[in-house]
Design a protein around this nucleic acid. Structure first.
Lengths: 105, 105
DNA sequence: TCCATTATTAAAGGATTGTTAAAACGTCAG
DNA sequence: CTGACGTTTTAACAATCCTTTAATAATGGA
């Protein structure tokens, strides 16, 4: 089980429009990831701002990076996000799973 | 599908130690919820601070409240959290579900 | 080596956030 | 009505966050 501080860090990392867009783009891209410059173009964010957000996301464990020549590729790491979701739903409704479902759906 | 702005709002609401503790406490409590004062005692947070955080969580759609006499009961609402998780994992790995799993587990 | 390309870092600002203390609001018992 | 209780609101301050600009690496081609 993740520690609360790490969960908060991951949630905070995603709780920002630009970073959420980065993460989602990388989630849909898959394990190969994208180069920083490609992301900058797709999301229309300046490289400096992007780099700032990469650091936040990486530090939260949500992103992995690898260098290939002059390019740095970023890819989503799902482990922390799964841990985050598990933490939020842990012991849901006193272990009465049905109560967790949306009532009228 | 939730709008990005609403997802950001929900993530931001949970991205704070006190609010995350509030939400988790209410998730494990179930639909009946707890009175504001009970939560204040359990989490050792001042009423004013707590009220401030209730507003943030409620405004994000994560909490519901009902008044009973002098007490206000708060309970977790799972709809927004589920929407948040769905948004994050949407179109995961270009719809290749296996790639979303943690590699070495 | 020199230069263009890719990406990160550092400094500055304006905006947002979290906590506290005080006052105010609603509700119920007497 | 009055007073006590539970909760919310307000104002203020320190702390943090996001963006921009400019400067600083690091890499590969000529």
């Amino acid at each position: 089980m993740m520690k609360p501080a790490q969960v908060v860090k991951a949630l905070a990392a995603l709780a920002q429009p630009t970073r959420l867009a980065i993460y989602r783009l990388l989630v849909s891209t898959g394990p190969d990831g994208l180069a920083a410059g490609q992301i900058a173009v797709k999301l229309k964010v300046s490289p400096a701002t992007l780099s700032f957000h990469f650091k936040t996301l990486s530090h939260a464990g949500l992103l992995e990076s690898r260098q290939d020549g002059r390019f740095v590729y970023y890819a989503a790491n799902f482990t922390v996000m799964h841990g985050m979701v598990d933490y939020l739903t842990e012991n849901c409704c006193g272990s009465d799973a049905n109560a967790c479902k949306t009532p009228g759906k």
